[in-house]
Amino acid sequence: MSDQPVRGVDVDHETRCAHYRTDRDVVSFKFDCCERYYPCFRCHEESTTHEAVPWPRARFDEPSVLCGVCGTELTVPGYLEADYSCPACDAAFNPGCANHAELYFETTGSSGE
């Protein structure tokens, strides 16, 4: 379980933010550039003064995805294999996050920009 705070804009106790507030928006991602969790790429953009760097493939064995319901940290492969729900508490994750995956972690063909 993570003891790191989730940073962002209007983040609630289950890591929903001002940008994404549905029942399923309860996952946060750690960025390689600052080693901090944010609920979304927009929160990172609005809360920092540096360019976002997605979690690198070389670090996929390290936890970098956080369940906002129970606080369990997952690796990227663990998150991707979980089929949009937390393997620890079964909380549903938003499948729409897949549309922005390259902003959170290196994907096949990602240049890490």
Rank of each mutant, 00 (worst) to 15 (best):
V27Q: 10
C40R: 12
A91C: 09
P77F: 01
T75P: 07
R42M: 13
H19M: 08
C17R: 02
G78T: 06
T15P: 08
V9M: 14
P5C: 09
W55S: 04
M1D: 15
C67P: 09
A91L: 04
L80K: 13
R16C: 00
T22G: 00
F41H: 15
Y20E: 12
Y104D: 09
V65D: 02
G71N: 07
C67A: 10
F93E: 12
Y37E: 05
S64P: 05
N99V: 11
P95C: 14
W55E: 04
F29H: 06
P87M: 00
H19E: 07
S64N: 09
F105P: 06
T108D: 15
H50M: 10
D83V: 15
P77W: 13
P56Q: 04
Y79M: 04
E51Q: 07
V76G: 11
C40V: 06
Y37T: 04
E62N: 07
D32I: 05
C43K: 06
F60D: 08
A88H: 14
P63S: 00
E46L: 15
C67F: 11
R24N: 11
A98W: 12
Y37M: 00
R7V: 08
R7F: 15
T107Q: 01
D61R: 15
S28N: 07
Y104K: 09
T15V: 15
P54V: 03
S28E: 02
P54N: 02
T75C: 08
A91Q: 08
P87C: 09
C67S: 03
E81D: 14
C67W: 06
Y79E: 09
P87F: 08
P39G: 07
D61S: 10
D61E: 03
